[in-house]
């Protein structure tokens, strides 16, 4: 290949090889491309179409209208959106507060302990989702174990009404999404160079200051990734509010599900609400990433 006389022939051969390879890649990717297009992308088109139809008690009538959007704009669904947003935000914050020290501790453990601790975090996560929620219902219920324990210790006089409150929803949300925060945080903190902390302390920073000036800024990436992994799924929460919360504070996931499942159904409104949620998520992701990218680029610009 180093012989210049042959360069031309070789590059011809190379072009042919590249073409062959690309063709191969198309063949290999085709099944997944088709599958995901048909069952992930196309369904959203259907959602768009259905959002423009007229609702029926059971299904839809194929008549185009903006009725669903008009209904939404009337403000009836503002509260569920607000509640879901607040829930997602609170869940994310609690996950950061609880997850950060845990991720930090695991990241700073010895190799052997790291694996054990990580498995300990993941095991509950592998236990059935519904069953874990069910168990929380038992634990938090009015005559459940928590209340019994608190009563017998004399900390309270009458059972706490936790179940069927927003607090119960938050507790279980944090419980379910915590590993999604811990794992990305762990992977970032683990790569952190801990001699930087020595350096900060050497230069006069106390432990607290070293943490806020060095460790925290350098684990921003993990906090960002974890927050996305928690916040966005939390926004669409349905079953946790359904099993833990009450009917006075309905979240958007519940509204969508009711409109799909319960009679009288209203699929156009459910579709429109889903689309609005999708748009909100897209906006959050895009602004999040652009802020993130800008930071990176600014750093590179200054470097130049």
């Amino acid at each position: 290949m180093n012989n210049s006389r042959h360069r031309n022939t070789f590059s011809q051969l190379e072009i042919r090889q590249v073409k062959k390879r690309n063709l191969q890649s198309w063949f290999l990717s085709m099944p997944s491309l088709i599958w995901l297009t048909a069952f992930f992308a196309v369904p959203y088109l259907i959602v768009i179409i259905y959002s423009l139809l007229v609702s029926d008690i059971y299904e839809v009538k194929f008549l185009f209208t903006l009725g669903a959007y008009r209904e939404i704009l009337s403000g009836a669904y503002f509260k569920p959106f607000f509640l879901s947003f607040r829930l997602a935000l609170i869940t994310t914050l609690f996950c950061i507060i609880l997850g950060y020290p845990v991720a930090y501790l695991i990241a700073r453990s010895s190799e052997k302990w790291k694996n054990i601790l990580l498995v300990l975090i993941i095991i509950p996560f592998w236990t059935n989702f519904i069953i874990r929620i069910f168990s929380w219902r038992i634990f938090l219920s009015t005559n459940g174990m928590l209340n019994e324990a608190l009563l017998s210790m004399g900390l309270i006089n009458q059972p706490l009404e936790i179940i069927r409150t927003d607090w119960a929803v938050i507790i279980v949300m944090v419980y379910v999404y915590l590993p999604y925060m811990i794992l990305p945080l762990y992977s970032v903190i683990e790569k952190l160079d801990f001699t930087l902390l020595d350096a900060a302390m050497d230069l006069g920073a106390s432990e607290r200051k070293a943490f806020f000036k060095v460790t925290l800024p350098l684990s921003r990436e993990g906090i960002f990734a974890g927050s996305i992994l928690v916040f966005i799924p939390a926004l669409g929460a349905y079953i946790i509010p359904q099993l833990m919360g009450n009917q006075n504070s309905l979240y958007i996931g519940q509204i969508i599900t009711y409109k799909i499942k319960n009679i009288p159904r209203n699929w156009p409104v459910a579709s429109a609400l889903s689309l609005i949620m999708l748009i909100i998520i897209a906006v959050i992701l895009l602004t999040g990433f652009s802020i993130y990218q800008k930071r990176k680029f600014r750093r590179m610009d200054e470097a130049r």
């Binding site: 160079d193 001699t195 350096a199 106390s206």
Partner: peptide, 28 residues
């Protein structure tokens, strides 16, 4: 503790703070 000693260190791998400019590193 290290932050109360009038002793400073140059680390083997320099341990410069990657999220700060040269200026901010020195100013730390």
């Amino acid at each position: 503790p290290p932050y109360k000693r009038q002793v400073n260190t140059i680390f083997q791998n320099y341990s410069l703070f990657p999220h700060m400019t040269v200026y901010e590193n020195v100013a730390f």
